[in-house]
Write a protein that binds this DNA or RNA. Sequence first.
DNA 1: CGGTTATGTCCATGTACAGTAAACAGAGAA
DNA 2: TTCTCTGTTTACTGTACATGGACATAACCG
Lengths: 135, 135
Amino acid sequence: MYSKQRTSERQTVMTAQKPKFGIFIRERRTAKGYSLRRFAELVGISPTYLSHVEQDKVDSPPTADRIQKMAELLGESADELFAMAGRVPEDLPKIIQSQPEAMPALLRAAKGLTPEQLKKLQDQASKMRREGDPS
Amino acid sequence: MYSKQRTSERQTVMTAQKPKFGIFIRERRTAKGYSLRRFAELVGISPTYLSHVEQDKVDSPPTADRIQKMAELLGESADELFAMAGRVPEDLPKIIQSQPEAMPALLRAAKGLTPEQLKKLQDQASKMRREGDPS
DNA sequence: CGGTTATGTCCATGTACAGTAAACAGAGAA
DNA sequence: TTCTCTGTTTACTGTACATGGACATAACCG
């Protein structure tokens, strides 16, 4: 009897997942005129699974690569879809791990800032990059 | 035959994982004078599993909460351990998802910057926060 | 020496997550 | 009616993240 033996408090890197995700996908898919089978085929998943996902009958949302594909097909922002699904965009983990101390520190400092403030930071980062390494 | 039926290209939000992780944990644990069983108990996992982890005999490293606990017990930076394990620190997904467009954009702009440059950005973020919302 | 105690390891097993296959029910067209 | 399209349900699969119990080895104690 080592741990608390968690029964269903599982979480990889995935927060709550709004029930919005499945509903949103279905809305956009039908708006685009895709049938469930056709869309599933294009995304590379089974119709069964897509049906489950759209009804929010799944414990966890699809993996990053499938969400990416959905975004492309629907003409939606992949990052928005990732957020709805409660997942982190595929490329971010590597960026964070490249600077294991500084990147998390930056994110925590940026927590709660407005989109406008974040945009300013982003611009400054881009500028730093253009100016090259000052060391 | 819908998908490519991936065989071992699985990845939740976890990149390669250096074989360093297990070795590092063992080195630090023994340096601290913990036995495998004692440390496993304190972390809240089985001795069996800890043994596997330290030998890098596991496919994926422990989950975020256990890595966090290890860091505390060993007096190591949790963020460093997360990076070694190929995981993202627990609190970051929520921060990212709170601004699904702006946070990923900031991270991508900050990609490749030096620790010094990142520190400057972090300081500016903290300053913005203290000055309150300018909207 | 012989028995206990502590070390780490191996093998079998369990449960959740991400997904599939096959069969099904309803609507519409021919 | 039958054919075909729609979406849905039930049961199953493989991998990830673990656990339990038995095991071998070495050290300690009388």
